[in-house]
Design a protein around this nucleic acid. Structure first.
Lengths: 213, 213, 213, 213
DNA sequence: CATGAATGAGCCTTCATTCAT
DNA sequence: AATGAATGAAGGCTCATTCAT
């Protein structure tokens, strides 16, 4: 009765299982060795499959990276949006964005490593996806800034494109430092101090006495 | 008479000449292809020397990258220090730091590419140098913050380690965006807006009504 | 009632059906790609069966070629014999032989391609069958020559082994040229001119004034 | 004095030496295994060089075959032309053509094997060269036929294109049979009997009583 | 019988490095 | 010091064949 159904499901699961096992293995190996240093054999061994099996699920080595980006990373960026939506005020939205960003990258350390390496390449293997994620991030920041301006908590004289780089860059650098640090402190603890810096900067009120540009 | 001396100098110059030609060629090739994609032959061809000649000046391919960092990049970071010293106030020092950073990376685009790629690797081939540069940058920021606090323009409740990442990350992201941008706008123009963001943040004075953490 | 019988027949037909579908598919793929370039997967896809199914009907890839030769090619060569038998005189027999040879290879172009490639290999995968066909062809030619000699139309001082190569080679070359020709002229039209050349050669009667060997 | 010259010559010879060693090794391996079955490693081993060395002299595996055709085979076909020129009458020219063809292919048995296999492929790897050689052969036959017609030894009602296939095919078949024969009889002995067949055909004068087409 | 996912041996090719000249 | 031919290890990928379902 349920036999056929079970069978199909098992097959499908098996398929999915292997696909994901390879993907997860690849992320680990890419994280450890870097994309070009990683070998397909290493990935296969880590995934517990034969070398040739890789090519049943992926077109080639590069294709694994592409799938990784459109699956794992995208998934993470989608969570950014969700968390931002949970908050009402601009301040809370930014706080949620930063917090979830740090939390997710802390939780998926290997993804973080691969992501960092890839977006800082000249010839990116995944240009399209990266551009899309950047756009999404920009959208979120734009929303926060505009809402914050309406609420009166965000300055009006801002170039949002720069604000996005200002925020994303700082967060990325915090993550990057953490990735290269010996002791594994809690990355998420950086969220609030960062948010405070984003809103208040490092200056005192006296800074307004100076014409900065 | 002066012949022997000349000869030695010429030789030495010749040596230096080739050493630098190889180094410059390598940076170009690394920038275009990435370190692992670049081949020693390409570098040799670009430098106008034989493949084997590379190994008279460098231990191996990786050694070229190491030399590049301790030569070119270090040189650039040394200029950071010089420019900062030219200014008197903390504000001007930070402005000079950001400006020279953007200017130098704009001027040495290939260096910028190689630098960005390398510092975002997990297994860095040049860990030592990068750590040293990070330390130097941290020193500069510390000095600026402390002076700024004395001058009354910088808040006292700051975690300098985070401030350094906050600043460096934003600048790096601005550079990274520029590197991947189609149109080559003037990167240095970002200096003042960035400095303003660093000091004032994105918030208005009303932000102080909210307890950020 | 007739059910069981039908079933068996259907099965058998089904078997035969698949067997032949695979064989025909293989010939097409072999013709297009060559034996070593062809893949079992391509054959399976063309035949509309699973890869594994191939191995229910054939021992391995090479076995398909063997079967092809003992099935298709043999069948064609059997037709040679039949057509020759239909004629009474040596001249008509040779004409029929040449005509049917050209016609059949024109009709089965893919077979022609595979056949040509295979018999001109050093290490033939189908040595036995080829030798058998050569023998059969030799038998036909022998018969024609002997009958022709009796009838007085064929010279007596002939080395039949050479005559067979003389005829077969010329026909094969005509076919080969056709196979590689852009425009698909009617191959069968070559039959009569060829037969004339076989009988009369290219010389005039004056050629007899010369001692050829 | 002669040192530099010697050096250059040695280098050049060395180069030529290796180039030719690889080429000769490749022909042997191609002859034994066929192009697709042959491995680059086998060729390298036979030539006494490292695998990678092959790629200093040839673009890839296929390129070796291409070079082989434009070097060895072409050289042989050039000899055809030379030998034909040595004779005065059409009869002698044809005899020389056939004789040198058989002699050369007998002397270069491996070349013969590779040549036979290649020209009977559907997708030839060396289409251009083969077409050129075919054209040259056609030119020779045309010349012989026309001269023979003037001399009165060759019939006027001939389609030269067919005559070329008639001759070349027969010769090729004789060679092919020899290549696959166990006992290595003297191939050149077939020249005169073949020439006689070409001129006189297999028919007697009575054949003229019959209308062949 | 039929399937097609999985295997892993094997091949072509690249390229960092060496070394005789 | 300089050359660049030669090396050979290593890696990505293919594909004939097997076998659990």
């Amino acid at each position: 009765m349920a036999q056929l159904g079970d069978y199909i499901i098992r097959r499908r699961d098996n398929h999915n299982d292997k696909y994901h096992r390879i993907l997860e293995a690849a992320i680990q190996v890419f994280a450890e060795q870097g994309f070009f240093q990683a070998t397909v054999s290493q990935i296969a061994a880590r995934a517990g499959v034969a070398d040739g099996t890789i090519y049943l699920y992926f077109k080639n080595k590069e294709d694994i990276l592409v799938h990784f980006f459109s699956y794992k990373t995208k998934q993470v960026f989608d969570r950014f949006r969700q968390e931002v939506n949970k908050a009402d005020t601009a301040v809370d939205k930014l706080r949620n964005l930063i917090r979830i960003h740090l939390e997710e990258f802390q939780r998926n350390k290997e993804m973080a490593v691969v992501y960092q390496a890839e977006i800082h390449q000249k010839s990116r293997l995944v240009e399209a996806q990266i551009r899309e994620m950047a756009k999404m991030y920009f959208g979120i920041v734009t929303e926060i800034v505009e809402q914050g301006q309406i609420e009166g908590y965000v300055r009006k004289d801002l170039y949002v494109g720069l604000v996005k780089r200002f925020i994303l860059g700082a967060v990325d650098e915090v993550i990057n430092t953490w990735l290269h640090s010996e002791d594994q402190y809690d990355l998420a603890l950086m969220a609030d101090p960062l948010v405070e810096l984003f809103f208040k900067g490092i200056g005192t009120s006296r800074i307004n006495e100076i014409v900065l540009h």
